[in-house]
């Protein structure tokens, strides 16, 4: 079953056309990279899929059901969204934050069940947060904070994970760790859409890339096809240097030990 099938999605915000007739698909097990220059509409597209924005035109099906048919709660169980901002307003502990990830599955009075606890423990293991579990969020480093917020999203066990620049402000090792975690999450029949600015990393980790430019899809498909000299020039106003070949998307380093 296709996880996300959006066709002709258009969005206006504040009288401005943000997205114009965008198609987007996400299949189970797939990691899709959304790329494009600043202001191309990548974040807005993720928010539209999450339900934070509403499309003026177009159809959107999520796990086979019309997006508009899903209640807020149903949608929040299927899709987890990781925004760009790492905001947490009170010094909540790491454990509490991850526990909040179970909230879409719980009633307003309900305490996490034994099964919920198991999921929380598993996520803590996967994200290597065991030693930090009692620490207040505000005392963590940027990389640790990013990992905690990812863990919060993973704890929801959504079929679809949407992450807006999840590796911004992370060092190269943590970037690799984060992307490895996300691509592992996809393998279990789930899907991930990432907004990325690092094109080599996007090419390396994502199954497909979708290049947005001025609210429209400029290209979609394999990294080699999408990151052509012509597309880069149109979207980013850059031209390849002599170092560029379509094989240069390799990452010139790798992690000594992957966590977990």
């Amino acid at each position: 079953m296709t996880l996300i099938a959006g066709e002709g999605l258009s969005l206006n915000l504040g009288g401005q056309r943000i997205l114009d007739q965008v198609d987007i698909r996400l299949e189970p097990g797939e990691m899709l990279g959304l790329i494009g220059p600043n202001g191309a509409g990548k974040s807005s597209l993720l928010k539209l899929l999450t339900g934070l924005h509403h499309a003026e035109r177009g159809t959107l099906r999520i796990t086979g059901r019309a997006g508009s048919d899903l209640t807020r709660e149903q949608r929040s169980r299927r899709i987890a969204w990781l925004g760009q901002q790492r905001e947490v307003h009170w010094p909540l502990s790491v454990e509490t934050l991850i526990e909040l990830g179970r909230a879409p599955h719980l009633g307003p009075w309900e305490q996490p069940s034994a099964e919920d606890r198991e999921i929380i423990e598993r996520v803590i293991e996967q994200t290597d947060l065991r030693s930090l579990r009692r620490r207040p969020f505000n005392t963590l480093s940027g990389g640790e904070q990013a990992r905690v917020l990812l863990a919060r999203a993973l704890a929801t066990e959504p079929q679809i994970l949407l992450a807006d620049e999840p590796i911004a402000a992370l060092d190269i090792a943590h970037q690799l760790d984060m992307l490895t975690l996300l691509s592992r999450y996809c393998r279990e029949g789930r899907g991930v859409i990432l907004v990325l600015h690092d094109l080599p990393l996007a090419a390396h980790f994502c199954d497909r890339l979708q290049l947005l430019h001025q609210g429209r899809t400029l290209a979609v498909g394999s990294a080699g096809a999408v990151l052509s000299a012509q597309h880069l020039k149109t979207a980013y106003q850059v031209i390849p240097t002599s170092a560029y070949t379509s094989e240069t998307f390799a990452i010139p380093w790798q992690r000594i030990n992957h966590p977990g």
Partner: peptide
């Protein structure tokens, strides 16, 4: 009485809380 969970989620920011089901 029943607002505890929504207020908890709101500590993650307005948009995140809405993406997690808060109206």
């Amino acid at each position: 009485m029943r607002l505890g969970q929504a207020l908890d989620l709101l500590s993650l920011g307005e948009e995140t809380s809405q993406s997690m089901g808060v109206d």
